[in-house]
Amino acid sequence: MELVEPLLPRAFNELGEPAKAKFLELRERYWELGATAMMFTTYFKMIHPDVPDLPLRDRVSSDATGMPDALLDATAYGDFLDTLIPFGEQAAAELRAALHPEATPFSDSE
């Protein structure tokens, strides 16, 4: 969630222009995933005491096309988490790699 919050991380300022553009593109792609995940945290519970009802499909913006159907259509919290966790880990890995390109391991082709 911290990688898609409104304030940019400090490491963003150290990036060159192409890397900044890549990070912003990924941030735009995944911001709604971060907002959705936030609804299930203890911080959100302080503001809104009820856990959101599932499925979420009708309660997220229509441009949530980057979110998996299994996440938006889950009717059980276990199924929801089974999709949210690996998708969130993938999103975080992509965002971190864009934010710290020097730390990205070489691919097999390099």
Rank of each mutant, 00 (worst) to 15 (best):
L72I: 03
Y43K: 11
E25L: 11
L8G: 06
V51N: 09
F40D: 09
E14D: 15
P6A: 13
Y30A: 02
L56P: 01
A70P: 02
R29Q: 15
R27V: 02
P6F: 11
D63P: 00
A35R: 13
L7P: 10
A21S: 14
A11K: 09
T36E: 07
A70N: 11
P52A: 08
K22P: 00
M67P: 05
A64W: 01
G16C: 05
M67D: 00
E25Q: 14
F12M: 06
M38Q: 13
M46Y: 11
R27F: 01
M67Q: 09
M67V: 04
L72T: 02
L71W: 00
D69P: 00
E14H: 08
I47V: 11
D69H: 07
F12N: 05
S61I: 06
P9E: 08
P6L: 10
L72C: 06
D58Y: 10
Y43R: 12
P52F: 08
E14N: 12
P6W: 09
L15K: 04
L7F: 05
H48Q: 14
D50R: 15
L54V: 05
R27T: 04
F44G: 04
D58S: 11
G34R: 05
I47F: 13
E14S: 12
G34F: 04
A37F: 06
M39D: 10
P68S: 09
P49Q: 10
P6I: 05
R57H: 09
A70G: 07
R57Y: 02
R59L: 06
E25K: 13
L33I: 06
P55Q: 01
V60H: 01
E28H: 13
V60M: 04
K20T: 03
A11C: 07
S62D: 15
M39P: 00
P18I: 05
D53R: 15
E28G: 12
N13Y: 12
L24A: 03
A64Y: 02
A35Q: 14
L72G: 03
G16S: 15
M39H: 07
E14C: 05
R10P: 08
P18R: 08
A21N: 11
S62R: 11
W31F: 14
P9G: 05
L15T: 04
D63M: 04
